[in-house]
Amino acid sequence: MSISRRTFLGWIGAAGVTSTIARKAQAASNKEFKGYPDASAVLHDITRCIGCRKCEAACNAVNELPQPDRPFDDLTVLENKRRTTAEAYTIVNRFQPEGDVQPTFVKIQCNHCLEPACASACFVKAFTKTPEGPVVYNAKVCVGCRYCMVACPFDIPAYEYDSAFDPKVRKCTLCQPRLAEGKLPGCVEACPTEALVFGRRSELLKVARGRIQAYPDRYVDHIYGEHEMGGTSWLYLSGPAFSEVGLREDLGTRAAGEFTAGALGAVPIVVGLWPVLLTGIYAITKRKDRIAAEEQQVAVTDAVTRTQADAQVKLKAALDKADQDKAAAIEREVKKALDAAEKAKEQE
């Protein structure tokens, strides 16, 4: 039932040549996206993994990573649960699910999601989902904000914290450079038990389903990665429940971009509505101010007119009074003169 790794060599060649130019990561848009059908993928059959760490060694070699403190054939390393780091793009962990006699080994690395959280999160588009399958990283634009690491649901990307001048995000490349040369990924090639199989994702899904059907007692009836977080290019088959061997089952099937689509969609609404609303409120405030000012103006004018009218009345009264006084004075003078004249007449 197993498919020879070599069969796939030809396929990669075909896939690699027909579409070498990476298109933009539609992964991050809100459009319905069902993945690139011809994209390459790897099926990891956990039930076949013997925990030899040959894949770790191969990955270290093909990526020219520094030698670890303890050699790859030292299997005591498996006593502690480890994760990927900037110096180890893939890790094999040992699990001892309850009730099992034999331990289970699981290899982890970037799952090359169909709609990667890391790509959706990056604010300089440093990650791209290529049509060939690999999620690739462009170190030339990365600012080092590490939001991709926050976003990745599988805790995969790692950072070179010890580099002062050129720190980079580090993760499995699905051996994209080797694929371009028509070679298999380093880890797949090194695996002695064919626990790793390379091929087209659509084909591998069929292979996986075939295995589950042929050996229903051996496998959980689920292909991990078929739908998790919108689907991944690394697929897993397991005997024990996935959550017991370190593969989270609470991730759901929605791609990461769907969680943020709502918040992003709210931006144009805020930008469109706020100015209108705020200007409206400002206009009302201003109008209130203006009406208040106008009312004040009216009151002032009123007061002024009233005072003026008052003054007029007073003035008139004063003038009248003055007129009367004048008239009285004239009358008095005339009377005086008349009196004087009369007196003079009498004296004559």
Partner: peptide
């Protein structure tokens, strides 16, 4: 250089 408009960041 490269606008990652799908990112909330």
């Amino acid at each position: 250089v490269s606008r990652g408009t799908t990112s909330l960041l």
